[in-house]
């Protein structure tokens, strides 16, 4: 243990402690996490495929069917979030629940449910996109820049 009279310890002492501490920190169960993320993420995508197939079989073109498919998946996720089920899917599957569009929808609904306590305008209204916001921001920034480059270099 270093000199306890200093609040901030020097980098050497901190590095030494962090080596000691990291030996006690359990490694994340990587194989288990990868398998559950793969399985649950895959299942969500397969469900999405079912919805997509339904819209295509009812006469839409593939392109036309994309937006309604996303809407249905988002609606499903909203219901699962309202009933606390998506939280548990996330606990179990990690990125398998976070990365599909259903995880994106979950962040919006979860934030809305949580922040309504601070009012429907400054709470729910203002904070609904507290986690989903960055996804939209960087999606638009990168999407528009990439498309601009491609459009200009036709």
């Amino acid at each position: 243990m270093p000199n306890p009279s200093k609040r901030k310890h020097n980098a050497n002492e901190q590095a030494k402690y962090q080596r000691i501490a990291s030996a006690h920190v359990p490694k994340p169960p990587l194989a288990r996490n990868l398998v559950t993320a793969f399985a649950v993420g895959g299942i969500i995508c397969a469900v999405g495929q079912g919805v997509l197939n339904y819209f295509v079989s009812s006469g839409m073109t593939f392109d036309e069917a994309i937006a309604p498919t996303l809407c249905v998946m988002i609606a499903l996720s909203a219901l699962l979030t309202a009933t606390s089920i998506y939280h548990h899917i996330g606990e179990f599957a990690g990125a398998g629940a976070a990365i599909p569009i259903t995880g994106f929808a979950n962040t919006i609904v979860a934030a809305a449910m949580d922040f309504k306590r601070e009012g429907y305008i400054l709470g729910m209204g203002a904070k609904m996109f507290i986690i989903a916001g960055p996804v939209i921001v960087y999606g638009v920034v990168s999407g528009v820049i990439v498309s601009a480059i491609r459009w200009l270099s036709r």
């Binding site: 793969f38 399985a39 895959g42 299942i43 397969a46 599957a93 990690g94 990125a95």
Partner: peptide, 18 residues
């Protein structure tokens, strides 16, 4: 869809854990 979607999610999990 299952295999590709699952693989994308597993890649994300790898980034989170590693």
């Amino acid at each position: 869809a299952f295999l590709v979607g699952g693989a994308i999610c597993a890649l994300a999990q790898l980034l989170i854990d590693v």
